[in-house]
């Protein structure tokens, strides 16, 4: 029964969000085209060859590091924020609207509130991973089409000039992990956390909470603002902040597991329907 619930959520959740997924893809294409133009200009000026990872860094490398007491340097990182906002929007409403409608029939047939919640968590995580596959896939395609070297290492001159990275120190492998794994891990954890808030309070509160964390993390490099672990530009190895990979690998799964458990306990004991009615 659990498998059928998950299949239902995957099909229905994707179908409900087709337009939003289309907009997400369009945004990624636009960001990539902007990146490709800047990278190509830079390549010509400096006689360098960008790699596929440089393109990924442009899209997913994170916003500029703001040194302490220099908030005046802050510029809202629109290009980096847009995909995050779209992901939050895509996952923010489905669970609640489904419960308001057809999902009610699904819920009573599932015989279990927990199974219903777990299925929504799985849908949520698969959707976020799928969106990142789209993000990376489109970026790699644009990079290849633009003649990028098909290697996964950063070109320091390019990423330090165009991708908000202050320094490229440390191992190539660590850069790769941070760029390819951590944004997904952070986003998956944040999305389940957001869905928990959306179902307990309301989708708009879930959205505001998650996006506040995202927004604050673009300014402050605090460990508690765990979204920092998804930004290479905010790591100790690029800007000397307290953000390190080991902490991110610990905090994000803990937040994910914590949200799933909190949801399980909550939905097993409290009302999960909108509280209006005759």
């Amino acid at each position: 029964m659990g498998k059928k619930l998950i299949i239902y959520d995957l099909k229905n959740g994707t179908r409900n969000n087709l337009a939003q997924i289309g907009i997400f893809m369009l945004i990624i294409i636009i960001i990539n085209l902007l990146g490709a133009r800047q990278i190509t200009d830079f390549e010509h000026r400096c006689h360098l060859n960008a790699t596929v990872l440089d393109y990924i860094c442009f899209v997913a490398g994170g916003p500029k590091h703001i040194p302490d007491n220099m908030l005046s340097l802050y510029v809202i990182p629109v290009l980096w924020l847009l995909p995050q906002v779209m992901i939050a929007y895509i996952i923010g409403y489905y669970a609640m609207t489904d419960l308001d409608r057809y999902g009610l029939q699904v819920l009573i047939r599932s015989d279990s509130r927990i199974r219903w919640w777990i299925s929504k968590c799985i849908w949520n995580s698969i959707t976020v991973i799928g969106l990142y596959i789209l993000l990376y896939g489109i970026t790699i395609l644009v990079a290849c089409f633009n003649g990028a070297e098909k290697t996964f290492r950063l070109t320091p001159e390019i990423v330090m000039s165009l991708c908000n990275i202050s320094n490229v120190n440390g191992s190539v492998i660590v850069h790769r992990w941070i760029l390819l794994l951590m944004p997904i891990l952070v986003s998956v954890s944040l999305s389940v956390f957001q869905m928990l808030f959306a179902l307990i309070f309301s989708p708009i509160i879930g959205f505001i909470v998650s996006q506040s964390i995202v927004f604050l993390a673009t300014i402050f490099e605090y460990k508690i603002l765990f979204v920092n672990y998804g930004m290479l530009s905010h790591y100790r190895l690029t800007c000397g902040s307290p953000i390190i990979l080991r902490d991110g690998l610990l905090i994000c799964p803990l937040l994910y597991i914590g949200s799933v458990i909190a949801g399980t306990l909550f939905f097993n004991h409290y009302d999960i329907l909108p509280k209006q009615g005759d």
Binding site: M1, Y8, R15, Y102, L104
Partner: peptide
């Protein structure tokens, strides 16, 4: 079996298909 407030089904499916999806959960 319940019908509470307005019925709501998946817009892009026929009535039969909507019920088939729900029936498949319990089987």
């Amino acid at each position: 079996g319940i019908l509470i407030e307005n019925p709501s089904f998946l817009n892009g499916y026929t009535g039969l298909d909507n019920l088939k999806i729900l029936a498949s959960i319990k089987g």
